[in-house]
């Protein structure tokens, strides 16, 4: 299974077929989710209309973790089994995940202001999300810090795995720290159980975010692989010019 996709040519062929489907799925899911979320669903009886921020905030937060998992698994596969496509997938995941993490923080602040009366609290979830954002930035910085791209790939793959072991520990420590510092009761985000009318747009938007990730992931991977072929061509030219 893994071997099958490890071949860059096969990946190019498969992703060529899948990309338009992912694009279509993203547009349809996002369109339906937006309609239900903005027009067809009621306002929350406590949070009022601000609850509509949830339909973009929760998918972003979910994708922040999803992308990191994808990144770490790809990095591990690339490092251990030396699959070139997995390396490319890890590298392509990072900027998407970083964007989603940033958006989760940003929309969280915009939701927090009317709800808690403050843009930012050192809440456990916010803090661990911020740390996750730093991990993404570190991964991308390390990936591009070497003259030899192959070294950047390997070094950042090791970092991704170290980070993956660390994320639960950081999460746990931040939870622990938070309970020491302030009572969690004021900051309950997950209020009463969600009304089914709100559940549907939420699911649709999460689905849209997931297909968006796959879509952009494939675009970026195709770009990386194409650029690799361009580099190889240039090398041939250089050799011919030298001969």
């Amino acid at each position: 299974m893994l071997n099958y996709f490890a071949n860059p040519r096969r990946f190019m062929k498969l992703s060529g077929i899948l990309t338009p489907w992912m694009a279509g799925a993203t547009l349809i899911l996002a369109g339906a989710g937006l309609y239900l979320g903005l027009f067809a669903s009621p306002a929350d009886y406590q949070q009022g209309e601000t609850v509509r921020i949830m339909y973009v905030h929760v998918p972003a937060a979910w994708m922040a973790l999803f992308c990191y998992t994808g990144l770490a698994i790809s990095a591990a596969v690339g490092l251990i089994w030396k699959h070139p496509v997995a390396d490319v997938a890890a590298r392509a995941s990072a900027p998407i995940g970083a964007c989603f993490t940033f958006l989760a923080l940003f929309t969280g602040a915009l939701w927090g202001k009317p709800m808690w009366g403050t843009w930012w609290v050192w809440d456990a979830r916010l803090t661990s999300m911020l740390v996750l954002f730093f991990l993404y930035l570190g991964y991308m910085a390390l990936n591009s810090a070497f003259d030899d791209p192959q070294r950047g790939t390997k070094a950042s793959a090791i970092l991704a795995m170290v980070g993956f072991v660390n994320v639960p520990i950081i999460k746990f420590s931040v939870d622990w720290w938070n309970t020491l510092h302030q009572p969690a009761s004021i900051l309950r985000m997950d209020g009463p159980t969600i009304h089914p009318d709100m559940l549907w747009p939420l699911f649709l938007m999460i689905g849209a975010a997931t297909t968006y990730y796959l879509w952009v992931l494939m675009l970026r991977m195709r770009r990386d692989l194409t650029e690799g072929r361009v580099r190889a061509r240039r090398q041939i030219q250089a050799e011919e010019a030298g001969a």
Partner: peptide, 29 residues
Amino acid sequence: LVLGSRRGGVLLALLILPLFIPVLIFGVG
């Protein structure tokens, strides 16, 4: 990990400080 990279020092801070957080929290705790 940063051996042989450009801008080793700043990069190291970016990579390592987030991973130091648990030690900081329990140390202060």
